[in-house]
Nucleic acid binder design. Structure first.
Lengths: 212, 212
DNA sequence: TCGATTGGTTATTGGATGATTACTTAGCAC
DNA sequence: GTGCTAAGTAATCATCCAATAACCAATCGA
């Protein structure tokens, strides 16, 4: 909002702390989405964001806090999209509108996958409670705001977890090679499969300095 | 099968290599299930199996090969249970029988979760292809052997991913605390919820020497 | 224009971590 | 018993990683 704030990561110039923070969060979301919490190093996040590794740590305190912020930001975005779909005037049934909003989030690289990585770390003493809280937040939205019953909500979430898994598996990689994969993906993504297939293959960072 | 082979990890005695190997694979399945591929150290697996860390590495070559063997073993067990459910004479509908078999696998600690951890590492050049292959193996079973159509198969798998997510989140931890959690879990596990709740909370290894 | 504040960097470190090497000992065949 | 093979362990290492410390330079208000 100030004069001459650098929006891109152009070299030599500075960003306001708040913008840089968001910039790092975006990069971190992509890296965490690809390699998960333990598989991600602060150095790779830093490189993806175009800053130094210690700066990442200084802004967020610890790698764990960074991951928790990534999860929170992802959930905020998701809820915003869901509420927008809910508010939307349309002939399309509500469940389909929210479903489409969900699939649309897949174009935000790493967002759904970072959440998914959080969902499988329920045993972690810090991440687990946050992940459960976030998941239930979505469930409560479906039940209370969207007006779904328990079974509808469960089925919707199941479809979501299926989508996350297809993305996590990079199942689209085998789309051209395997007719069964095509059939499965068409069943899992009745609409907007094209969005998925368009998400091509640039790994966010050459995997230097990352864990084995 | 031989005389005097030690079955438990009783101290001072030896096991035949094949038995010890299976013993380590079981322990590794639990640890990988809790912390994922990158979050698991060979030292923690070794402690869980009651052997030394270098021995784990020597038996399996690398940590990566160990994880791939864990995935393969998990898939083998899963397919065996599915085929058993298929062969079973019963009045229960086939889909329910296979579903019950799936939930039953949850009592095999770490098995479904290790698979799930594999499913979200699709970008990994070694793990990704194996994970996709394993997933499609299940899909082909449903389509070809069980006789489901594409949509039925997709819905079944979606339910499976939902179950995996609930387990990964340790959602049962909040069962007593949160009425919404109870409602969701009852919807996700129409039967056999008791099996899940019975799976209490002994973390497989005090988390020494593990990743941050 | 100058001093303070904010937005960064380079250098460094302590502690893990996967893997290797060299060594020990249990159990079987005879 | 005795010797051979298979089943392990202890010691060690190179590497990596998150975090800390110390320092530098844009930008802005006055």
């Amino acid at each position: 909002m100030s004069s001459m704030t650098n929006e891109s990561g152009a070299k030599g110039t500075r960003m306001r702390a708040e913008d840089r923070r968001e910039h790092i969060l975006k990069a971190a979301t992509e890296v965490f989405g690809d390699y998960g919490y333990f598989g991600t190093t602060t150095a790779v996040v830093a490189r993806a964001a175009g800053v130094s590794q210690p700066y990442v740590v200084r802004v967020f305190g610890t790698k764990e806090k960074l991951f928790l912020e990534v999860l929170q930001r992802a959930l905020d975005l998701l809820m915003r999209e869901f509420r927008a779909a809910l508010a939307e005037e349309s002939d399309v049934p509500l469940a389909d509108r929210i479903g489409l909003a969900y699939v649309g989030l897949a174009s935000n690289r790493g967002l759904l996958l970072s959440l998914m990585h959080g969902f499988v770390l329920g045993r972690d003493p810090e991440i687990g409670p946050e992940a459960r809280r976030g998941f239930m937040c979505v469930y409560r939205f479906l039940r209370t705001e969207a007006g779904f019953d328990a079974d509808e909500s469960e089925r919707f979430l199941a479809g979501g977890m299926m989508i996350n898994t297809m993305i996590g598996l990079r199942m689209t990689d085998d789309f051209d090679r395997d007719a069964d994969v095509r059939e499965l993906l068409r069943a899992a993504f009745p609409q907007k499969l094209d969005v998925l297939l368009a998400l091509a293959e640039p790994p966010i960072a050459e995997r230097n300095g990352a864990r084995s």
